[in-house]
């Protein structure tokens, strides 16, 4: 998208549309029919572009649709990211049995969304959590998980 020179319409405009719709899907704002929309749009972009950039830009998208169609559907229908990659669709929580209450995550949380006191299992307040994953990175006990 950033590499399009902007000379011809399908590449300049179309690839941006693909990106926007894809961003919507990964953010849980996808709608039924978006996958078909992407496919049909990709076809026109590939056939209509002058150079190899526009002709190939939609290829990786079409491949992911072909091989990971179920993941697209999960994002659109269930607003879930099965791979736990789309930040906006995952939730973080602490497995109480594993948490010794070291308060490391509590201190590292940028939005102070983790409550608890020393030696007591902590808890993540999902309302304020920005899904940054800092707590998971810092936890030595593997008590912070997401999905």
């Amino acid at each position: 998208m950033e590499e399009s020179c902007g000379k011809c319409t399908p590449c300049r405009e179309g690839v941006r549309h693909l990106y926007d719709i894809l961003t919507d899907i990964s953010g849980g704002r996808g709608r039924e029919g978006d996958v078909e929309l992407l496919e049909s749009m990709s076809r026109a972009i590939m056939d209509g572009s002058i150079c190899g950039l526009g002709q190939t830009a939609p290829v990786p998208l079409l491949s992911t649709i072909r091989y990971f169609r179920d993941e697209f559907d999960a994002h659109i229908r269930d607003k879930k990211c099965p791979a736990g990659v789309c930040k906006e669709l995952v939730t973080y929580w602490i497995v109480e049995e594993k948490c010794p209450g070291c308060s490391l995550c509590l201190r590292v949380c940028p939005t102070d969304s983790i409550i608890g006191s020393k030696k007591v299992a902590h808890k993540i307040l999902t309302e304020n959590c920005i899904h940054c994953g800092a707590c998971e990175d810092v936890c030595k006990f593997g008590a912070v998980v997401h999905g």
């Binding site: 319409t9 405009e13 026109a44």
Partner: peptide, 16 residues
């Protein structure tokens, strides 16, 4: 094929 592609290109312009 021509119609389908052309329609998309016009749609891209209209969206602007």
């Amino acid at each position: 094929w021509v119609r389908e592609t052309r329609k998309w290109i016009l749609a891209f312009m209209l969206a602007r």
